[in-house]
Structure formats: C-alpha cells, structure tokens
Amino acid sequence: MMKHILMPLFSVCFLSAPLGAFGDDQDADDTDEFDVSEEILSIKGDPEYGEYLSGDCTGCHQVDGSYDGIPSITGWDEESFVWAMHSYKEKAREHPVMQMMAGRLSNDEIAALAAYFATLE
C-alpha cells in the first residue's frame, strides 16, 4: 500500500487531473480552463454534515489515505477539494462515477465535504 502517495502529486493533479487510477480518457478533460467562482469557494462548510456525507465517499476512498487504485481524498486543503468536486459536477473532468457523485451534491454539500476531509490526518 502506498500511503499518501497522491499528496505530493496533488498540485499537479489540481492543474491537469492526471489521476491514472480513474478509468477514463484523460484527453477529454478540460480542467485547465475550469474555474470555480469566489462565491462558491467562500462557502463555509459544515464538517458535521460533511462527515455524514462522506459515507458516500468512503465506500471507495480509504479514509486513512491509503491508495490501492482509487486516489486518496484525505487531508486536501478545502479549496482544492471544492475545485475538484465542481470540476466533476460541471463535467469539466472525466470520470463517470465522480461526475455522478458530485453531480447531485449542492454547493453547500461540497463545501461540507471539503471541510470534513480537511480535518482528517
């Protein structure tokens, strides 16, 4: 198991979303152009709600940050997390599972998840 292997890569991922563990054609991504409004980024998330919502994440993503084929989402800074989720929600970033999961989350819910996951070591 490669614990936290994605963390050092994150700044790169953030720009180009090259997470090879996601099963999609990365060429179709358009994340360079993708922007999230200040209004969305400024939403203060409720970590308690985020903890509940995280149940939808932890069926796949390991809370301890381990990586076995699905990237870690633990310990990201909130802004990066929000940006990544909105890039799926708006289908700027490819991945059918993540587009579906993010697609039904409200802006407040994404902020809540970001607030929760940012608290995890």
Partner: peptide, 23 residues
C-alpha cells in the same frame, strides 16, 4: 471501450475493494 479504459476500470475496482472492506 479502449483497453486502457478497461484496465483503469479494473484497477479502480481493486481500489474499491480495499476501500469498502476498510469501511
């Protein structure tokens, strides 16, 4: 789908197995 997509899907399933059993 391309072989690359199918391989990535399989590798993702391995990650899911680790994730759900940890959960």
């Amino acid at each position: 789908e391309s072989a690359d997509v199918r391989q990535a899907t399989y590798e993702e399933s391995e990650g899911w197995y680790s994730g759900i059993t940890a959960d």
